[in-house]
Design a protein around this nucleic acid. Structure first.
Length: 168
DNA sequence: GCCAACGTTGGC
DNA sequence: GCCAACGTTGGC
């Protein structure tokens, strides 16, 4: 899941939500509101289950990359911000009877032992495209603009291995 | 701040 | 249902 660690204002509301912000949330848990893309919505609504592991990715910042790990603690329910006219993610075409947008709750787990930058992931991705390897289809590159992306067990395991080795 | 990539909208 | 115009994402 991608989130912006730096302040950026939309309709006077700060879009910042860093990994530290998640840690500082009540019970180290937060809802993941504001997703307004159908593909991402479908992952949230249909795929994300309690206990699923999630990488927390910092985007739109000086050094983008994976900063830590969190997990799903509450499954899909309607995103309240779609009903709030003052919210930047208000959607007047959605109704409470038939909500369009959903969210899950995620809970902080741990920071990675080291930051895994986009550059490093890209390097591995390009290598795996050429020579074969688990990151050849990583959604971060094949579905780059999605803010919520699926990850396979194989991809997950490989990235965890990167965490405990030196950057190459 | 630029802009490529890509998703959405709406006229036809 | 096509597709041009427009909007958004997010790396650089």
């Amino acid at each position: 899941m991608k989130s912006e660690p730096n302040s950026r204002f939309e309709n006077g509301i700060d879009m910042k939500f860093s990994f530290d912000d998640l840690k500082a949330s009540p019970n180290q848990t937060s809802c993941w509101d504001g997703v307004r893309n159908y593909q991402a919505r479908n992952f949230i609504r249909d795929q994300m289950k309690i206990g699923h592991d999630v990488f927390f990715y910092h985007s739109n910042c000086k050094e983008p990359g994976i900063i830590g790990q969190c997990k799903v603690v509450k499954e899909s329910y309607p995103d309240h911000t779609q009903f709030d006219p003052k919210d930047p993610h208000y959607d007047r075409t959605s109704s409470k009877d038939n909500p369009k947008w959903f969210m899950v709750d995620v809970k902080y787990v741990r920071p990675l032992q080291r930051f895994i930058s986009l550059a490093e992931l890209k390097k591995a991705h390009l290598d795996h495209l050429k020579n074969g390897g688990p990151l050849r289809n990583l959604a971060l590159f094949t579905k780059a603009r999605l803010s919520v992306q699926p990850i396979s067990q194989e991809e997950w395991d490989y990235i965890l291995k990167m965490e405990s080795s030196d950057e190459s």
